[in-house]
Design a protein around this nucleic acid. Structure first.
Lengths: 136, 136
DNA sequence: CACTACTTTAGAATCATTATAAAGTAGAAA
DNA sequence: TTTCTACTTTATAATGATTCTAAAGTAGTG
């Protein structure tokens, strides 16, 4: 189970001080059954609702990007004017339902191996992501 | 060959009045050897340099989105804070160089067939696009 | 307990994008 | 050609997300 102690350890083990703001954000993000997608503004609303502490927007930004850097969060390429994040950091692909603007995780087994044949000298592949657009 | 006459016809045939601004923008976008990627700001700079007419930013936005709707342009989602557009409207994949923020087209033959095994009842697949993030 | 480097914060600043509303223009009709 | 109207362009203001700033607060070390 994810409890406060775990979050403190998790944070400390990656060199982030376990401040109360970061722990609150961990709770909001990881103390759930399933992974989920969110924008910064979504998270701000969740925190406002769930948390007794007021956490400033700047801190939410700082924390989300710190978590992204530590690979606790993944940023998703879907949208132009907002950043979407995913608490599912495993390598996976997405369906994007254009009719409803809904983003659906694909399991690894849902997509066959993607074979990138071209190499760019001196560059390393960081990730390979498939976006499948669907509609009614 | 792409000349003014062609652009006028192209525009008119899709219900867009061939204004001098739109024709200038067509020239900037399509009167070239190869397809390319650009942001609105890139295009604004190109137009400032190439075109005698001053074209307002608002018109550039309007025109780019009108062209997108008519399928003259494709919008590319790379998780950045700007919209990228592509004059190559065929379905294709991309490298995104995270070190330089550069977007590189992949040819169809550069990526093996992507096998999407999961189906969503009642939904049709519109496109399958692969984004390969690379860096130094 | 004291110190220092890391954090948080409010608010301002910035940047891309969208909205507004007034002036201009293309195309159709007379 | 002239007139008319709907479509366009434009400058500018407004918006909204994100980043910056610099001052106050705090965790962890010694």
């Amino acid at each position: 189970m994810n409890n406060k102690e775990n979050f403190v350890n998790k944070l400390r083990s990656s060199g982030l001080r376990p401040t109360k703001q970061r722990i609150e954000i961990c709770k909001a993000l990881y103390d759930r059954e399933k992974t989920f997608h969110f924008t910064i503004m979504d998270l701000a609303k969740i925190l406002k609702r769930k948390s007794r502490e007021k956490i400033s927007l700047a801190t939410i930004y700082n924390t989300v990007f710190a978590f992204k850097k530590k690979n606790y969060l993944k940023e998703i390429s879907i949208n132009k004017n907002k950043s979407y994040f995913d608490t599912n950091v495993s390598s996976h692909h997405h369906f994007f339902n254009e009719s409803s603007n809904e983003l659906i995780d694909l399991k690894k087994s849902d997509v066959g191996r993607v074979n990138i044949k071209r190499k760019i000298p001196g560059k390393k592949i960081k990730s390979v992501e498939v976006l499948v657009r669907i509609s009614d």
